[in-house]
Design a protein around this nucleic acid. Structure first.
Length: 492
DNA sequence: AAGTGCGGGTCAA
DNA sequence: TTGACCCGCACTT
């Protein structure tokens, strides 16, 4: 189906991954061999994209993804196939103290996932619920990995129709941090007991002032992610690695003492802006993709059985929101519209940008029936996306070219978003009308992101350096994170 | 314990 | 035939 291996697109305006400039499909007998460059590792791929990674890229070697992807047997030992597990949310869709939603990473292991779903929402005690991914014709988004020759080929099929879960690194970092807190807490208690025994304890209030303030939290190496400092700095728009400052704040003693409101009660950020790409692409990072929050912890560490999964690290980003997850999850694949159906649906014609598409798929997440936190209004400026994406394994490479080019004019800056402290649900619902649309263009963003000039991002981030200490500001969360962590093999 | 990858097997389209 | 999915196993973290 694809052209000669290595044959690049001749469209000079094609700003996409190197992998997508080449014409290949993961199932092709022969993949491009004469590779001239590699793509920077992308943790949050979304959409029908392809990348070619260096065989030395550690993340590519590990088949890493921000999404919770589980191995799927495709009976082809040459190609590793993984499918998305979705995201775990609160069944009541409760709003956390910081105004965000619970969005946990589904456990990859089946047993662990079952256990995970038996747990309760740490915020409202209602059940947790797994929102399955139905972004690929009603089936989970699939990722394919293939080591061929001197490159690692990656291909993704489908557009995630759910919020991002915590990334693997975030989950690991959170667990790591919590464990450290636990051990620290226990050590502190022992120390205190010893002090009492020896008559050296003079704290009249019996208050552990700063006792939970871990010294290790001063440095990024405290967290697994940084130790692995090596994560690639993808030139993508929203790297997912945490800013150590956020951890520092989050795991502060106040938060750990139980029912204490997070010190950073949030402010969904109005400033949603992503620097232009070299070709003046500009778009908004959706809230659910870019923000996160650090709700207060409710577990008493003294009980020694903190469930790290119940301590949401980042709960960001909601795509859609005020949905009823029961409705969402109870819907079978059959009720979802495939891409063919979507594109063929009358009335949308050439306005088939992703936002429009997903907002009209009939999927509860995007139904107009729902009062969505971020709305589902398509960008009025969204141009036609002359894309044809098949719903089968074989994806026409031709689909990629126009999708990127056509996105040029879809500029949407969240400058008008309200800056608010602690908004109630219904208030938030009206805040991000444009965000949803941008999120739905994930495929394009991902494709565009890889070559983005990091310089403007840096300057932009530097301008907002102060915000690093105060989570949430909506969408630039992930963007900010990119500053604190570096990816492996990155030339950043 | 959980993540990861492999592979046998079933089922439905 | 193809793709999704379940399961068990082995190995790693």
């Amino acid at each position: 189906m694809s052209g000669a291996p290595g044959e690049p697109f001749d469209d000079q305006d094609c700003i996409c991954s190197y992998g997508m400039k080449l014409t290949w499909d993961i199932n092709d007998p022969r993949l491009p061999q004469d590779l001239k460059q590699f793509d920077t590792f992308q943790e949050w791929t979304d959409g029908y994209v392809r990348f070619v990674y260096s065989p030395d890229d550690k993340n590519a070697q590990r088949h890493l993804s921000g999404w919770a992807m589980r191995n799927t047997n495709n009976h082809n030992c040459q190609i590793l196939k993984k499918s998305c597990l979705g995201v775990v949310v609160c069944s009541r869709n409760c709003t956390l103290l910081d105004g965000t939603k619970l969005q946990l990473r589904p456990a990859i292991c089946d047993k662990a996932r079952q256990k995970q779903q038996k747990k309760l929402c740490n915020n409202c005690n209602s059940a947790l619920e797994l929102i399955p991914c139905r972004g690929h014709s009603g089936y989970p988004v699939t990722n394919f990995w293939r080591l061929d020759g001197k490159a690692i080929f990656f291909q993704a099929k489908g557009v995630h129709d759910h919020p991002r879960p915590e990334s693997k690194s975030e989950t690991e970092a959170r667990r790591s941090a919590v464990k450290r807190q636990i051990s620290s807490s226990h050590l502190s208690q022992k120390k205190r007991a010893l002090e009492i025994e020896t008559g050296r304890y003079h704290d009249s209030g019996g208050h552990f002032s700063n006792i939970h303030q871990l010294s290790c939290l001063e440095g990024p190496e405290c967290f697994g992610i940084i130790a692995d400092s090596s994560f690639p700095v993808p030139a993508q728009h929203y790297p997912s690695f945490q800013n150590p400052e956020l951890y520092k704040a989050t795991y502060d003693s106040a938060s750990f003492q139980g029912d204490v409101v997070s010190p950073f009660q949030k402010c969904p950020n109005p400033r949603i802006y992503v620097p232009r790409t070299p070709c003046s692409y500009e778009f908004t990072v959706p809230s659910y993709l870019g923000s996160s929050s650090y709700p207060a912890f409710y577990k008493d560490l003294n009980n020694g059985s903190v469930d790290t999964d119940h301590i949401p690290l980042s709960v960001p980003q909601h795509t859609s929101s005020a949905l009823n997850v029961h409705d969402r999850s109870s819907e079978g694949p059959g009720k979802h519209h495939g891409w063919k159906q979507i594109f063929g649906k009358p009335g949308y014609g050439d306005r088939s940008d992703y936002g429009q598409i997903q907002a009209t798929t009939g999927h509860p997440y995007y139904k107009g029936d729902y009062t969505c936190r971020y709305g589902s209004t398509p960008s009025p400026a969204a141009p036609a996306l002359q894309t044809v994406i098949t719903t089968t394994t074989k994806v026409s490479y031709q689909a990629y070219k126009p999708s990127v080019v056509k996105f040029t004019d879809n500029t949407c800056e969240g400058k008008n978003l309200q800056n608010c402290g602690h908004l109630p649900d219904n208030a938030l619902e009206t805040v991000y009308p444009e965000v949803k649309v941008q999120e739905d263009t994930g495929v394009i963003k991902t494709a565009l992101g890889y070559q983005q000039d990091p310089v403007p991002i840096k300057s932009d981030r530097l301008e907002n350096l102060d915000m690093y200490r105060y989570p949430y500001t909506g969408n630039n969360y992930q963007e900010r994170l990119g500053h604190s962590f570096t990816f492996e093999n990155s030339d950043f």
